[in-house]
């Protein structure tokens, strides 16, 4: 990481509490006053015990969860800054399309859509011509050891590891300036772990700001520039 790199993601005093109306309005605070700055070309690993709120933070950064308080400032490559925490749905959708890439733990399978199209879709959404996107998707899938015979099949019947690699190809393919990785190597063998380490290194080299949850110490040590601890909050009474 170069010292002159500008920040891409700035989290300020983020709060997140879940209110479970079906359990009599039970309130579960998960994040309180969370702050974090991530620069271009930097990879930050979230650390902390299971249940501390690492995935919750990642999902707030992805716009999947709404923030309860505080700000999530996102700077796009053109320099425009948007507060994700306050943005309306269409702005969030545009940021997710163009700026924020998110690799979830599990692939959400879409019936009947071939794996290749699932991988190519975010690239097409960012404006790449269809055929070029399919070509790029195929190259990336081969690199993740997904043979060509699988490209035309819907991933519903794939193994967990194959599905996860489709998910990774989908997340890395579009070259988003911000990447959020939720246990990207959880169900991968050593060979594919190495591929993912390579992909993360390349993303950093092109200036992506990365926030990830890495249970695998070997992967974490290989990619993370620093750790950001998340401490569990005491349950509200």
């Amino acid at each position: 990481m170069t010292g002159a790199a500008e920040w891409r993601l700035r989290v300020e005093a983020l709060d997140k509490t879940f209110t479970l109306h079906l359990q009599g309005g039970l309130r579960i605070p998960v994040l309180r006053g969370e702050s974090l700055v991530v620069h271009a070309g930097e990879c930050v690993a979230l650390s902390g015990p299971s249940g501390a709120g690492k995935s919750t933070l990642l999902r707030c950064l992805a716009g999947t969860y709404g923030a309860g308080g505080g700000r999530i400032l996102v700077r796009d490559p053109a320099g425009a800054v948007t507060d994700l925490a306050a943005a309306d749905a269409r702005t969030v959708a545009a940021l997710r399309r163009n700026v924020i890439g998110y690799v979830s733990q599990f692939l959400r399978v879409i019936p009947r859509v071939p794996a290749l199209d699932i991988v190519a879709e975010p690239m097409i959404a960012r404006g790449m011509p269809k055929e070029a996107a399919r070509e790029a998707a195929a190259v990336l899938m081969r690199r993740l050891n997904l043979p060509d015979r699988l490209h035309r099949l819907p991933p519903a019947t794939f193994s967990g590891g194959e599905q996860q690699r489709v998910n990774l190809a989908r997340g890395f393919g579009a070259g988003h300036p911000i990447l959020l990785l939720d246990e990207p190597t959880a169900s991968l063998d050593a060979g594919n772990r190495a591929v993912v380490i390579g992909l993360i290194a390349e993303a950093k080299a092109r200036g992506a700001a990365i926030v990830g949850i890495f249970h695998d110490a070997e992967v974490r040590d290989a990619v993370a520039d620093r750790h950001h601890p998340i401490r569990p909050l005491p349950d509200a009474a």
């Binding site: 999902r59 716009g63 969860y65 709404g66 969030v92």
Partner: peptide
């Protein structure tokens, strides 16, 4: 309630 489909389904606010 209204919003981004994924957020409304993953983080619904209204009872």
């Amino acid at each position: 309630e209204q919003g981004l489909t994924e957020r409304v389904l993953e983080d619904p606010q209204h009872p």
